[in-house]
Design a binder for these strands. Structure first.
Length: 483
RNA sequence: GGCCCCAUCGUCUAGCGGUCUAGGACGUCGCCCUUUCACGGCGAAAACACGGGUUCGAUUCCCGUUGGGGUCACCA
């Protein structure tokens, strides 16, 4: 009865990943929603690492998660809490429950439970613990026998959660069995740990994946038991967010494109603001808004905007958003991000002059890229060493007619004093005109000779970027190659 | 299988009883711009899963069917 929904006071949310893998896309969205809600409400956003599974928790996974969150700009308040370190406190709560009759010792062995489930399955009964030790005295167990501590959950009635996303959800208590709180080795289970930690951390709003909706009822039973014995354990507000599925509608799993966020960063060349924007729109909406800045999101975000149905991950839309943010991004930043890949492609060091050239080229390169890999690829021509290798299509542009045109262009621009895009354009246009050809006929062989490819930024910008010496050198290489 | 949740264009969504001949975005397809590729502009095709109710009136409310998802550990 005393367990009212937490109201008033400061909003506290948390993100609680278990470090058994990297920060995947679903976790990132959960973290984002928690972060946004806390910031929008002027509350706190906490981070808790659920490392109670000692066998599967790893330091590299912890680092990857923290790294991913920093990359996404999801900063957390206070120190991150490590769940395993709090095992004593968890056990303390279990003992309190035990002392007050809200929990009991269960001496059933693993084999015993296994056969119980097998029998239930054979009889098409729901598989759940039958409460065989619920009302038995511990004295009936063999001396020194191992036991687990189970919650003595209510069996009558039903519990309704007013979920902020899913609405009112009711489950009969008869559907729930008595969950294990403490394992036979005395360590706390996840169910116990989350509840105790959320309480101790003052978490008011639990925003998490839909897959935890059923757990919420068990956890609530535990919360209400503690509230009954010592008070001060209010029900948290729950918001269970539908999961993200793969493009085919199947659950996103490791083999199903559930990549860590670092893969989006390192392998796909996604900008964090693009991923944030995409993730925000996946399952949350605000009218027709599509391009939403972090600031705007913080202002707009509400739990009511979260949709109730699962959504599919759409790489195309992410790429589109990414292209948008690349176009908006600062040139120096982009040049810095792309530099390592450009160096790798060039196969040589690129000094300060090269870095500066890369930066100056960005305005012409970035409208054409949907990710950082594209951007790096498109930048590569700037740093190729002479004589340039021609790809197949570029080579075919430089047939004898192309070479003749190239020679004419070379003669025309060699005399240009002002090596600017406008001046060069005038010179090249004149060549096309005299030849009675469209500019395209002249520009393509020129592009091939200058870049080794058939696509590039505007050819006059390329000329200007490369500079007189390099440009004429590249043309000379081509002309010489055919003589 | 039991229990729980969900259901608008291919995808993400707007819609919260009449304003819906259902809006936007991505993608797709045309056209324009144009030195290539992009960007940008214009336009097109494309959806309320089905069946019952409730109501003067349902995309919107209720029930069922179908479909999808989640969950049933001494894992988190």
């Amino acid at each position: 009865m005393g367990a009212g929904v937490a109201t008033g006071g400061q909003v506290v949310t948390r993100f609680a990943p278990s470090p058994t893998g990297f920060l995947h896309i679903g976790g990132a969205r959960t973290a984002l929603f928690n972060w946004l809600f806390a910031r929008a409400q002027g509350g706190k956003f906490l981070l808790r690492i659920e490392d109670t599974d000692r066998a599967r928790s790893t330091q590299p996974a912890i680092d990857a998660i923290l790294d991913g969150m920093r990359w996404l700009g999801l900063d957390w308040d206070d120190e991150a809490v490590f769940q395993f370190a709090r095992a004593d406190r968890h056990a303390e709560v279990a003992d309190t429950l035990l002392a007050n009759g809200h929990a009991y010792k269960c001496f059933a062995t693993a084999e015993e439970l296994e056969s119980m489930r097998a029998e239930q399955k054979a009889n098409k009964q729901p598989m759940r613990y039958d409460g065989r030790w619920r009302d038995r005295s511990p004295d009936e167990a063999p001396a020194g026998a191992p036991f687990v501590v189970r919650l003595r959950a209510p069996r009558e009635g039903a519990v309704t959660i007013e979920d902020r996303v899913q609405g009112a959800v009711t489950v009969q208590n008869a559907e729930l069995d008595d969950m294990v709180l403490l394992r036979s080795d005395g360590t706390p289970t996840y169910m116990l740990a989350v509840v105790v930690d959320d309480h101790d951390m003052g978490v008011t709003h639990v925003i998490r994946g839909d897959d935890h909706l059923n757990n919420a009822f068990r956890q609530l039973a535990l919360i209400r038991a503690m509230d009954a014995v010592e008070g001060g354990w209010p029900d948290p507000v729950y918001a269970h967010v539908p999961l993200i599925h793969g493009a085919d509608g199947a659950k996103l799993s490791k083999r199903h494109g559930a990549l860590g966020v670092e893969a989006y960063r390192d392998e796909m060349g996604i900008l964090p603001e693009a991923l944030n924007n995409y993730l925000l729109r996946l399952g949350w909406g605000h009218g027709d808004a599509e391009i939403i800045s972090r600031e705007q999101a913080t202002e707009w975000f509400t739990l009511d905007g979260i949709g109730r149905s699962p959504s599919r991950f759409d790489t195309k839309k992410l790429e589109n958003l990414n292209g948008h943010y690349i176009r908006e991004a600062d040139d120096t930043r982009l040049a810095t991000l792309v530099l390592p890949a450009v160096i790798a492609q060039a196969g040589r060091e690129i000094g300060p002059d090269g870095a500066e050239l890369l930066r100056r080229a960005m305005p012409f390169l970035k409208p054409r890229a949907k990710d950082l890999r594209d951007l790096a690829d498109a930048s590569a021509f700037l740093f190729r060493t002479r004589p340039l290798d021609m790809d197949e299509r570029a080579a075919s542009l430089l047939d004898s007619a192309g070479i003749d045109l190239l020679a004419a262009v070379e003669r025309a621009i060699a005399g240009v004093d002002d090596w600017s895009a406008t001046a060069l354009e005038a010179a090249v246009r004149a060549v096309a005109e005299t030849a009675g050809l469209g500019l395209g006929k002249v520009a393509q062989p020129l592009r091939a000779a200058l870049t080794g490819r058939t696509t590039s930024p505007g050819i006059f910008d390329v000329l200007a970027l490369l500079g007189r010496e390099e440009s004429l050198g590249r043309l000379a290489d081509r002309l010489a190659a055919t003589n």
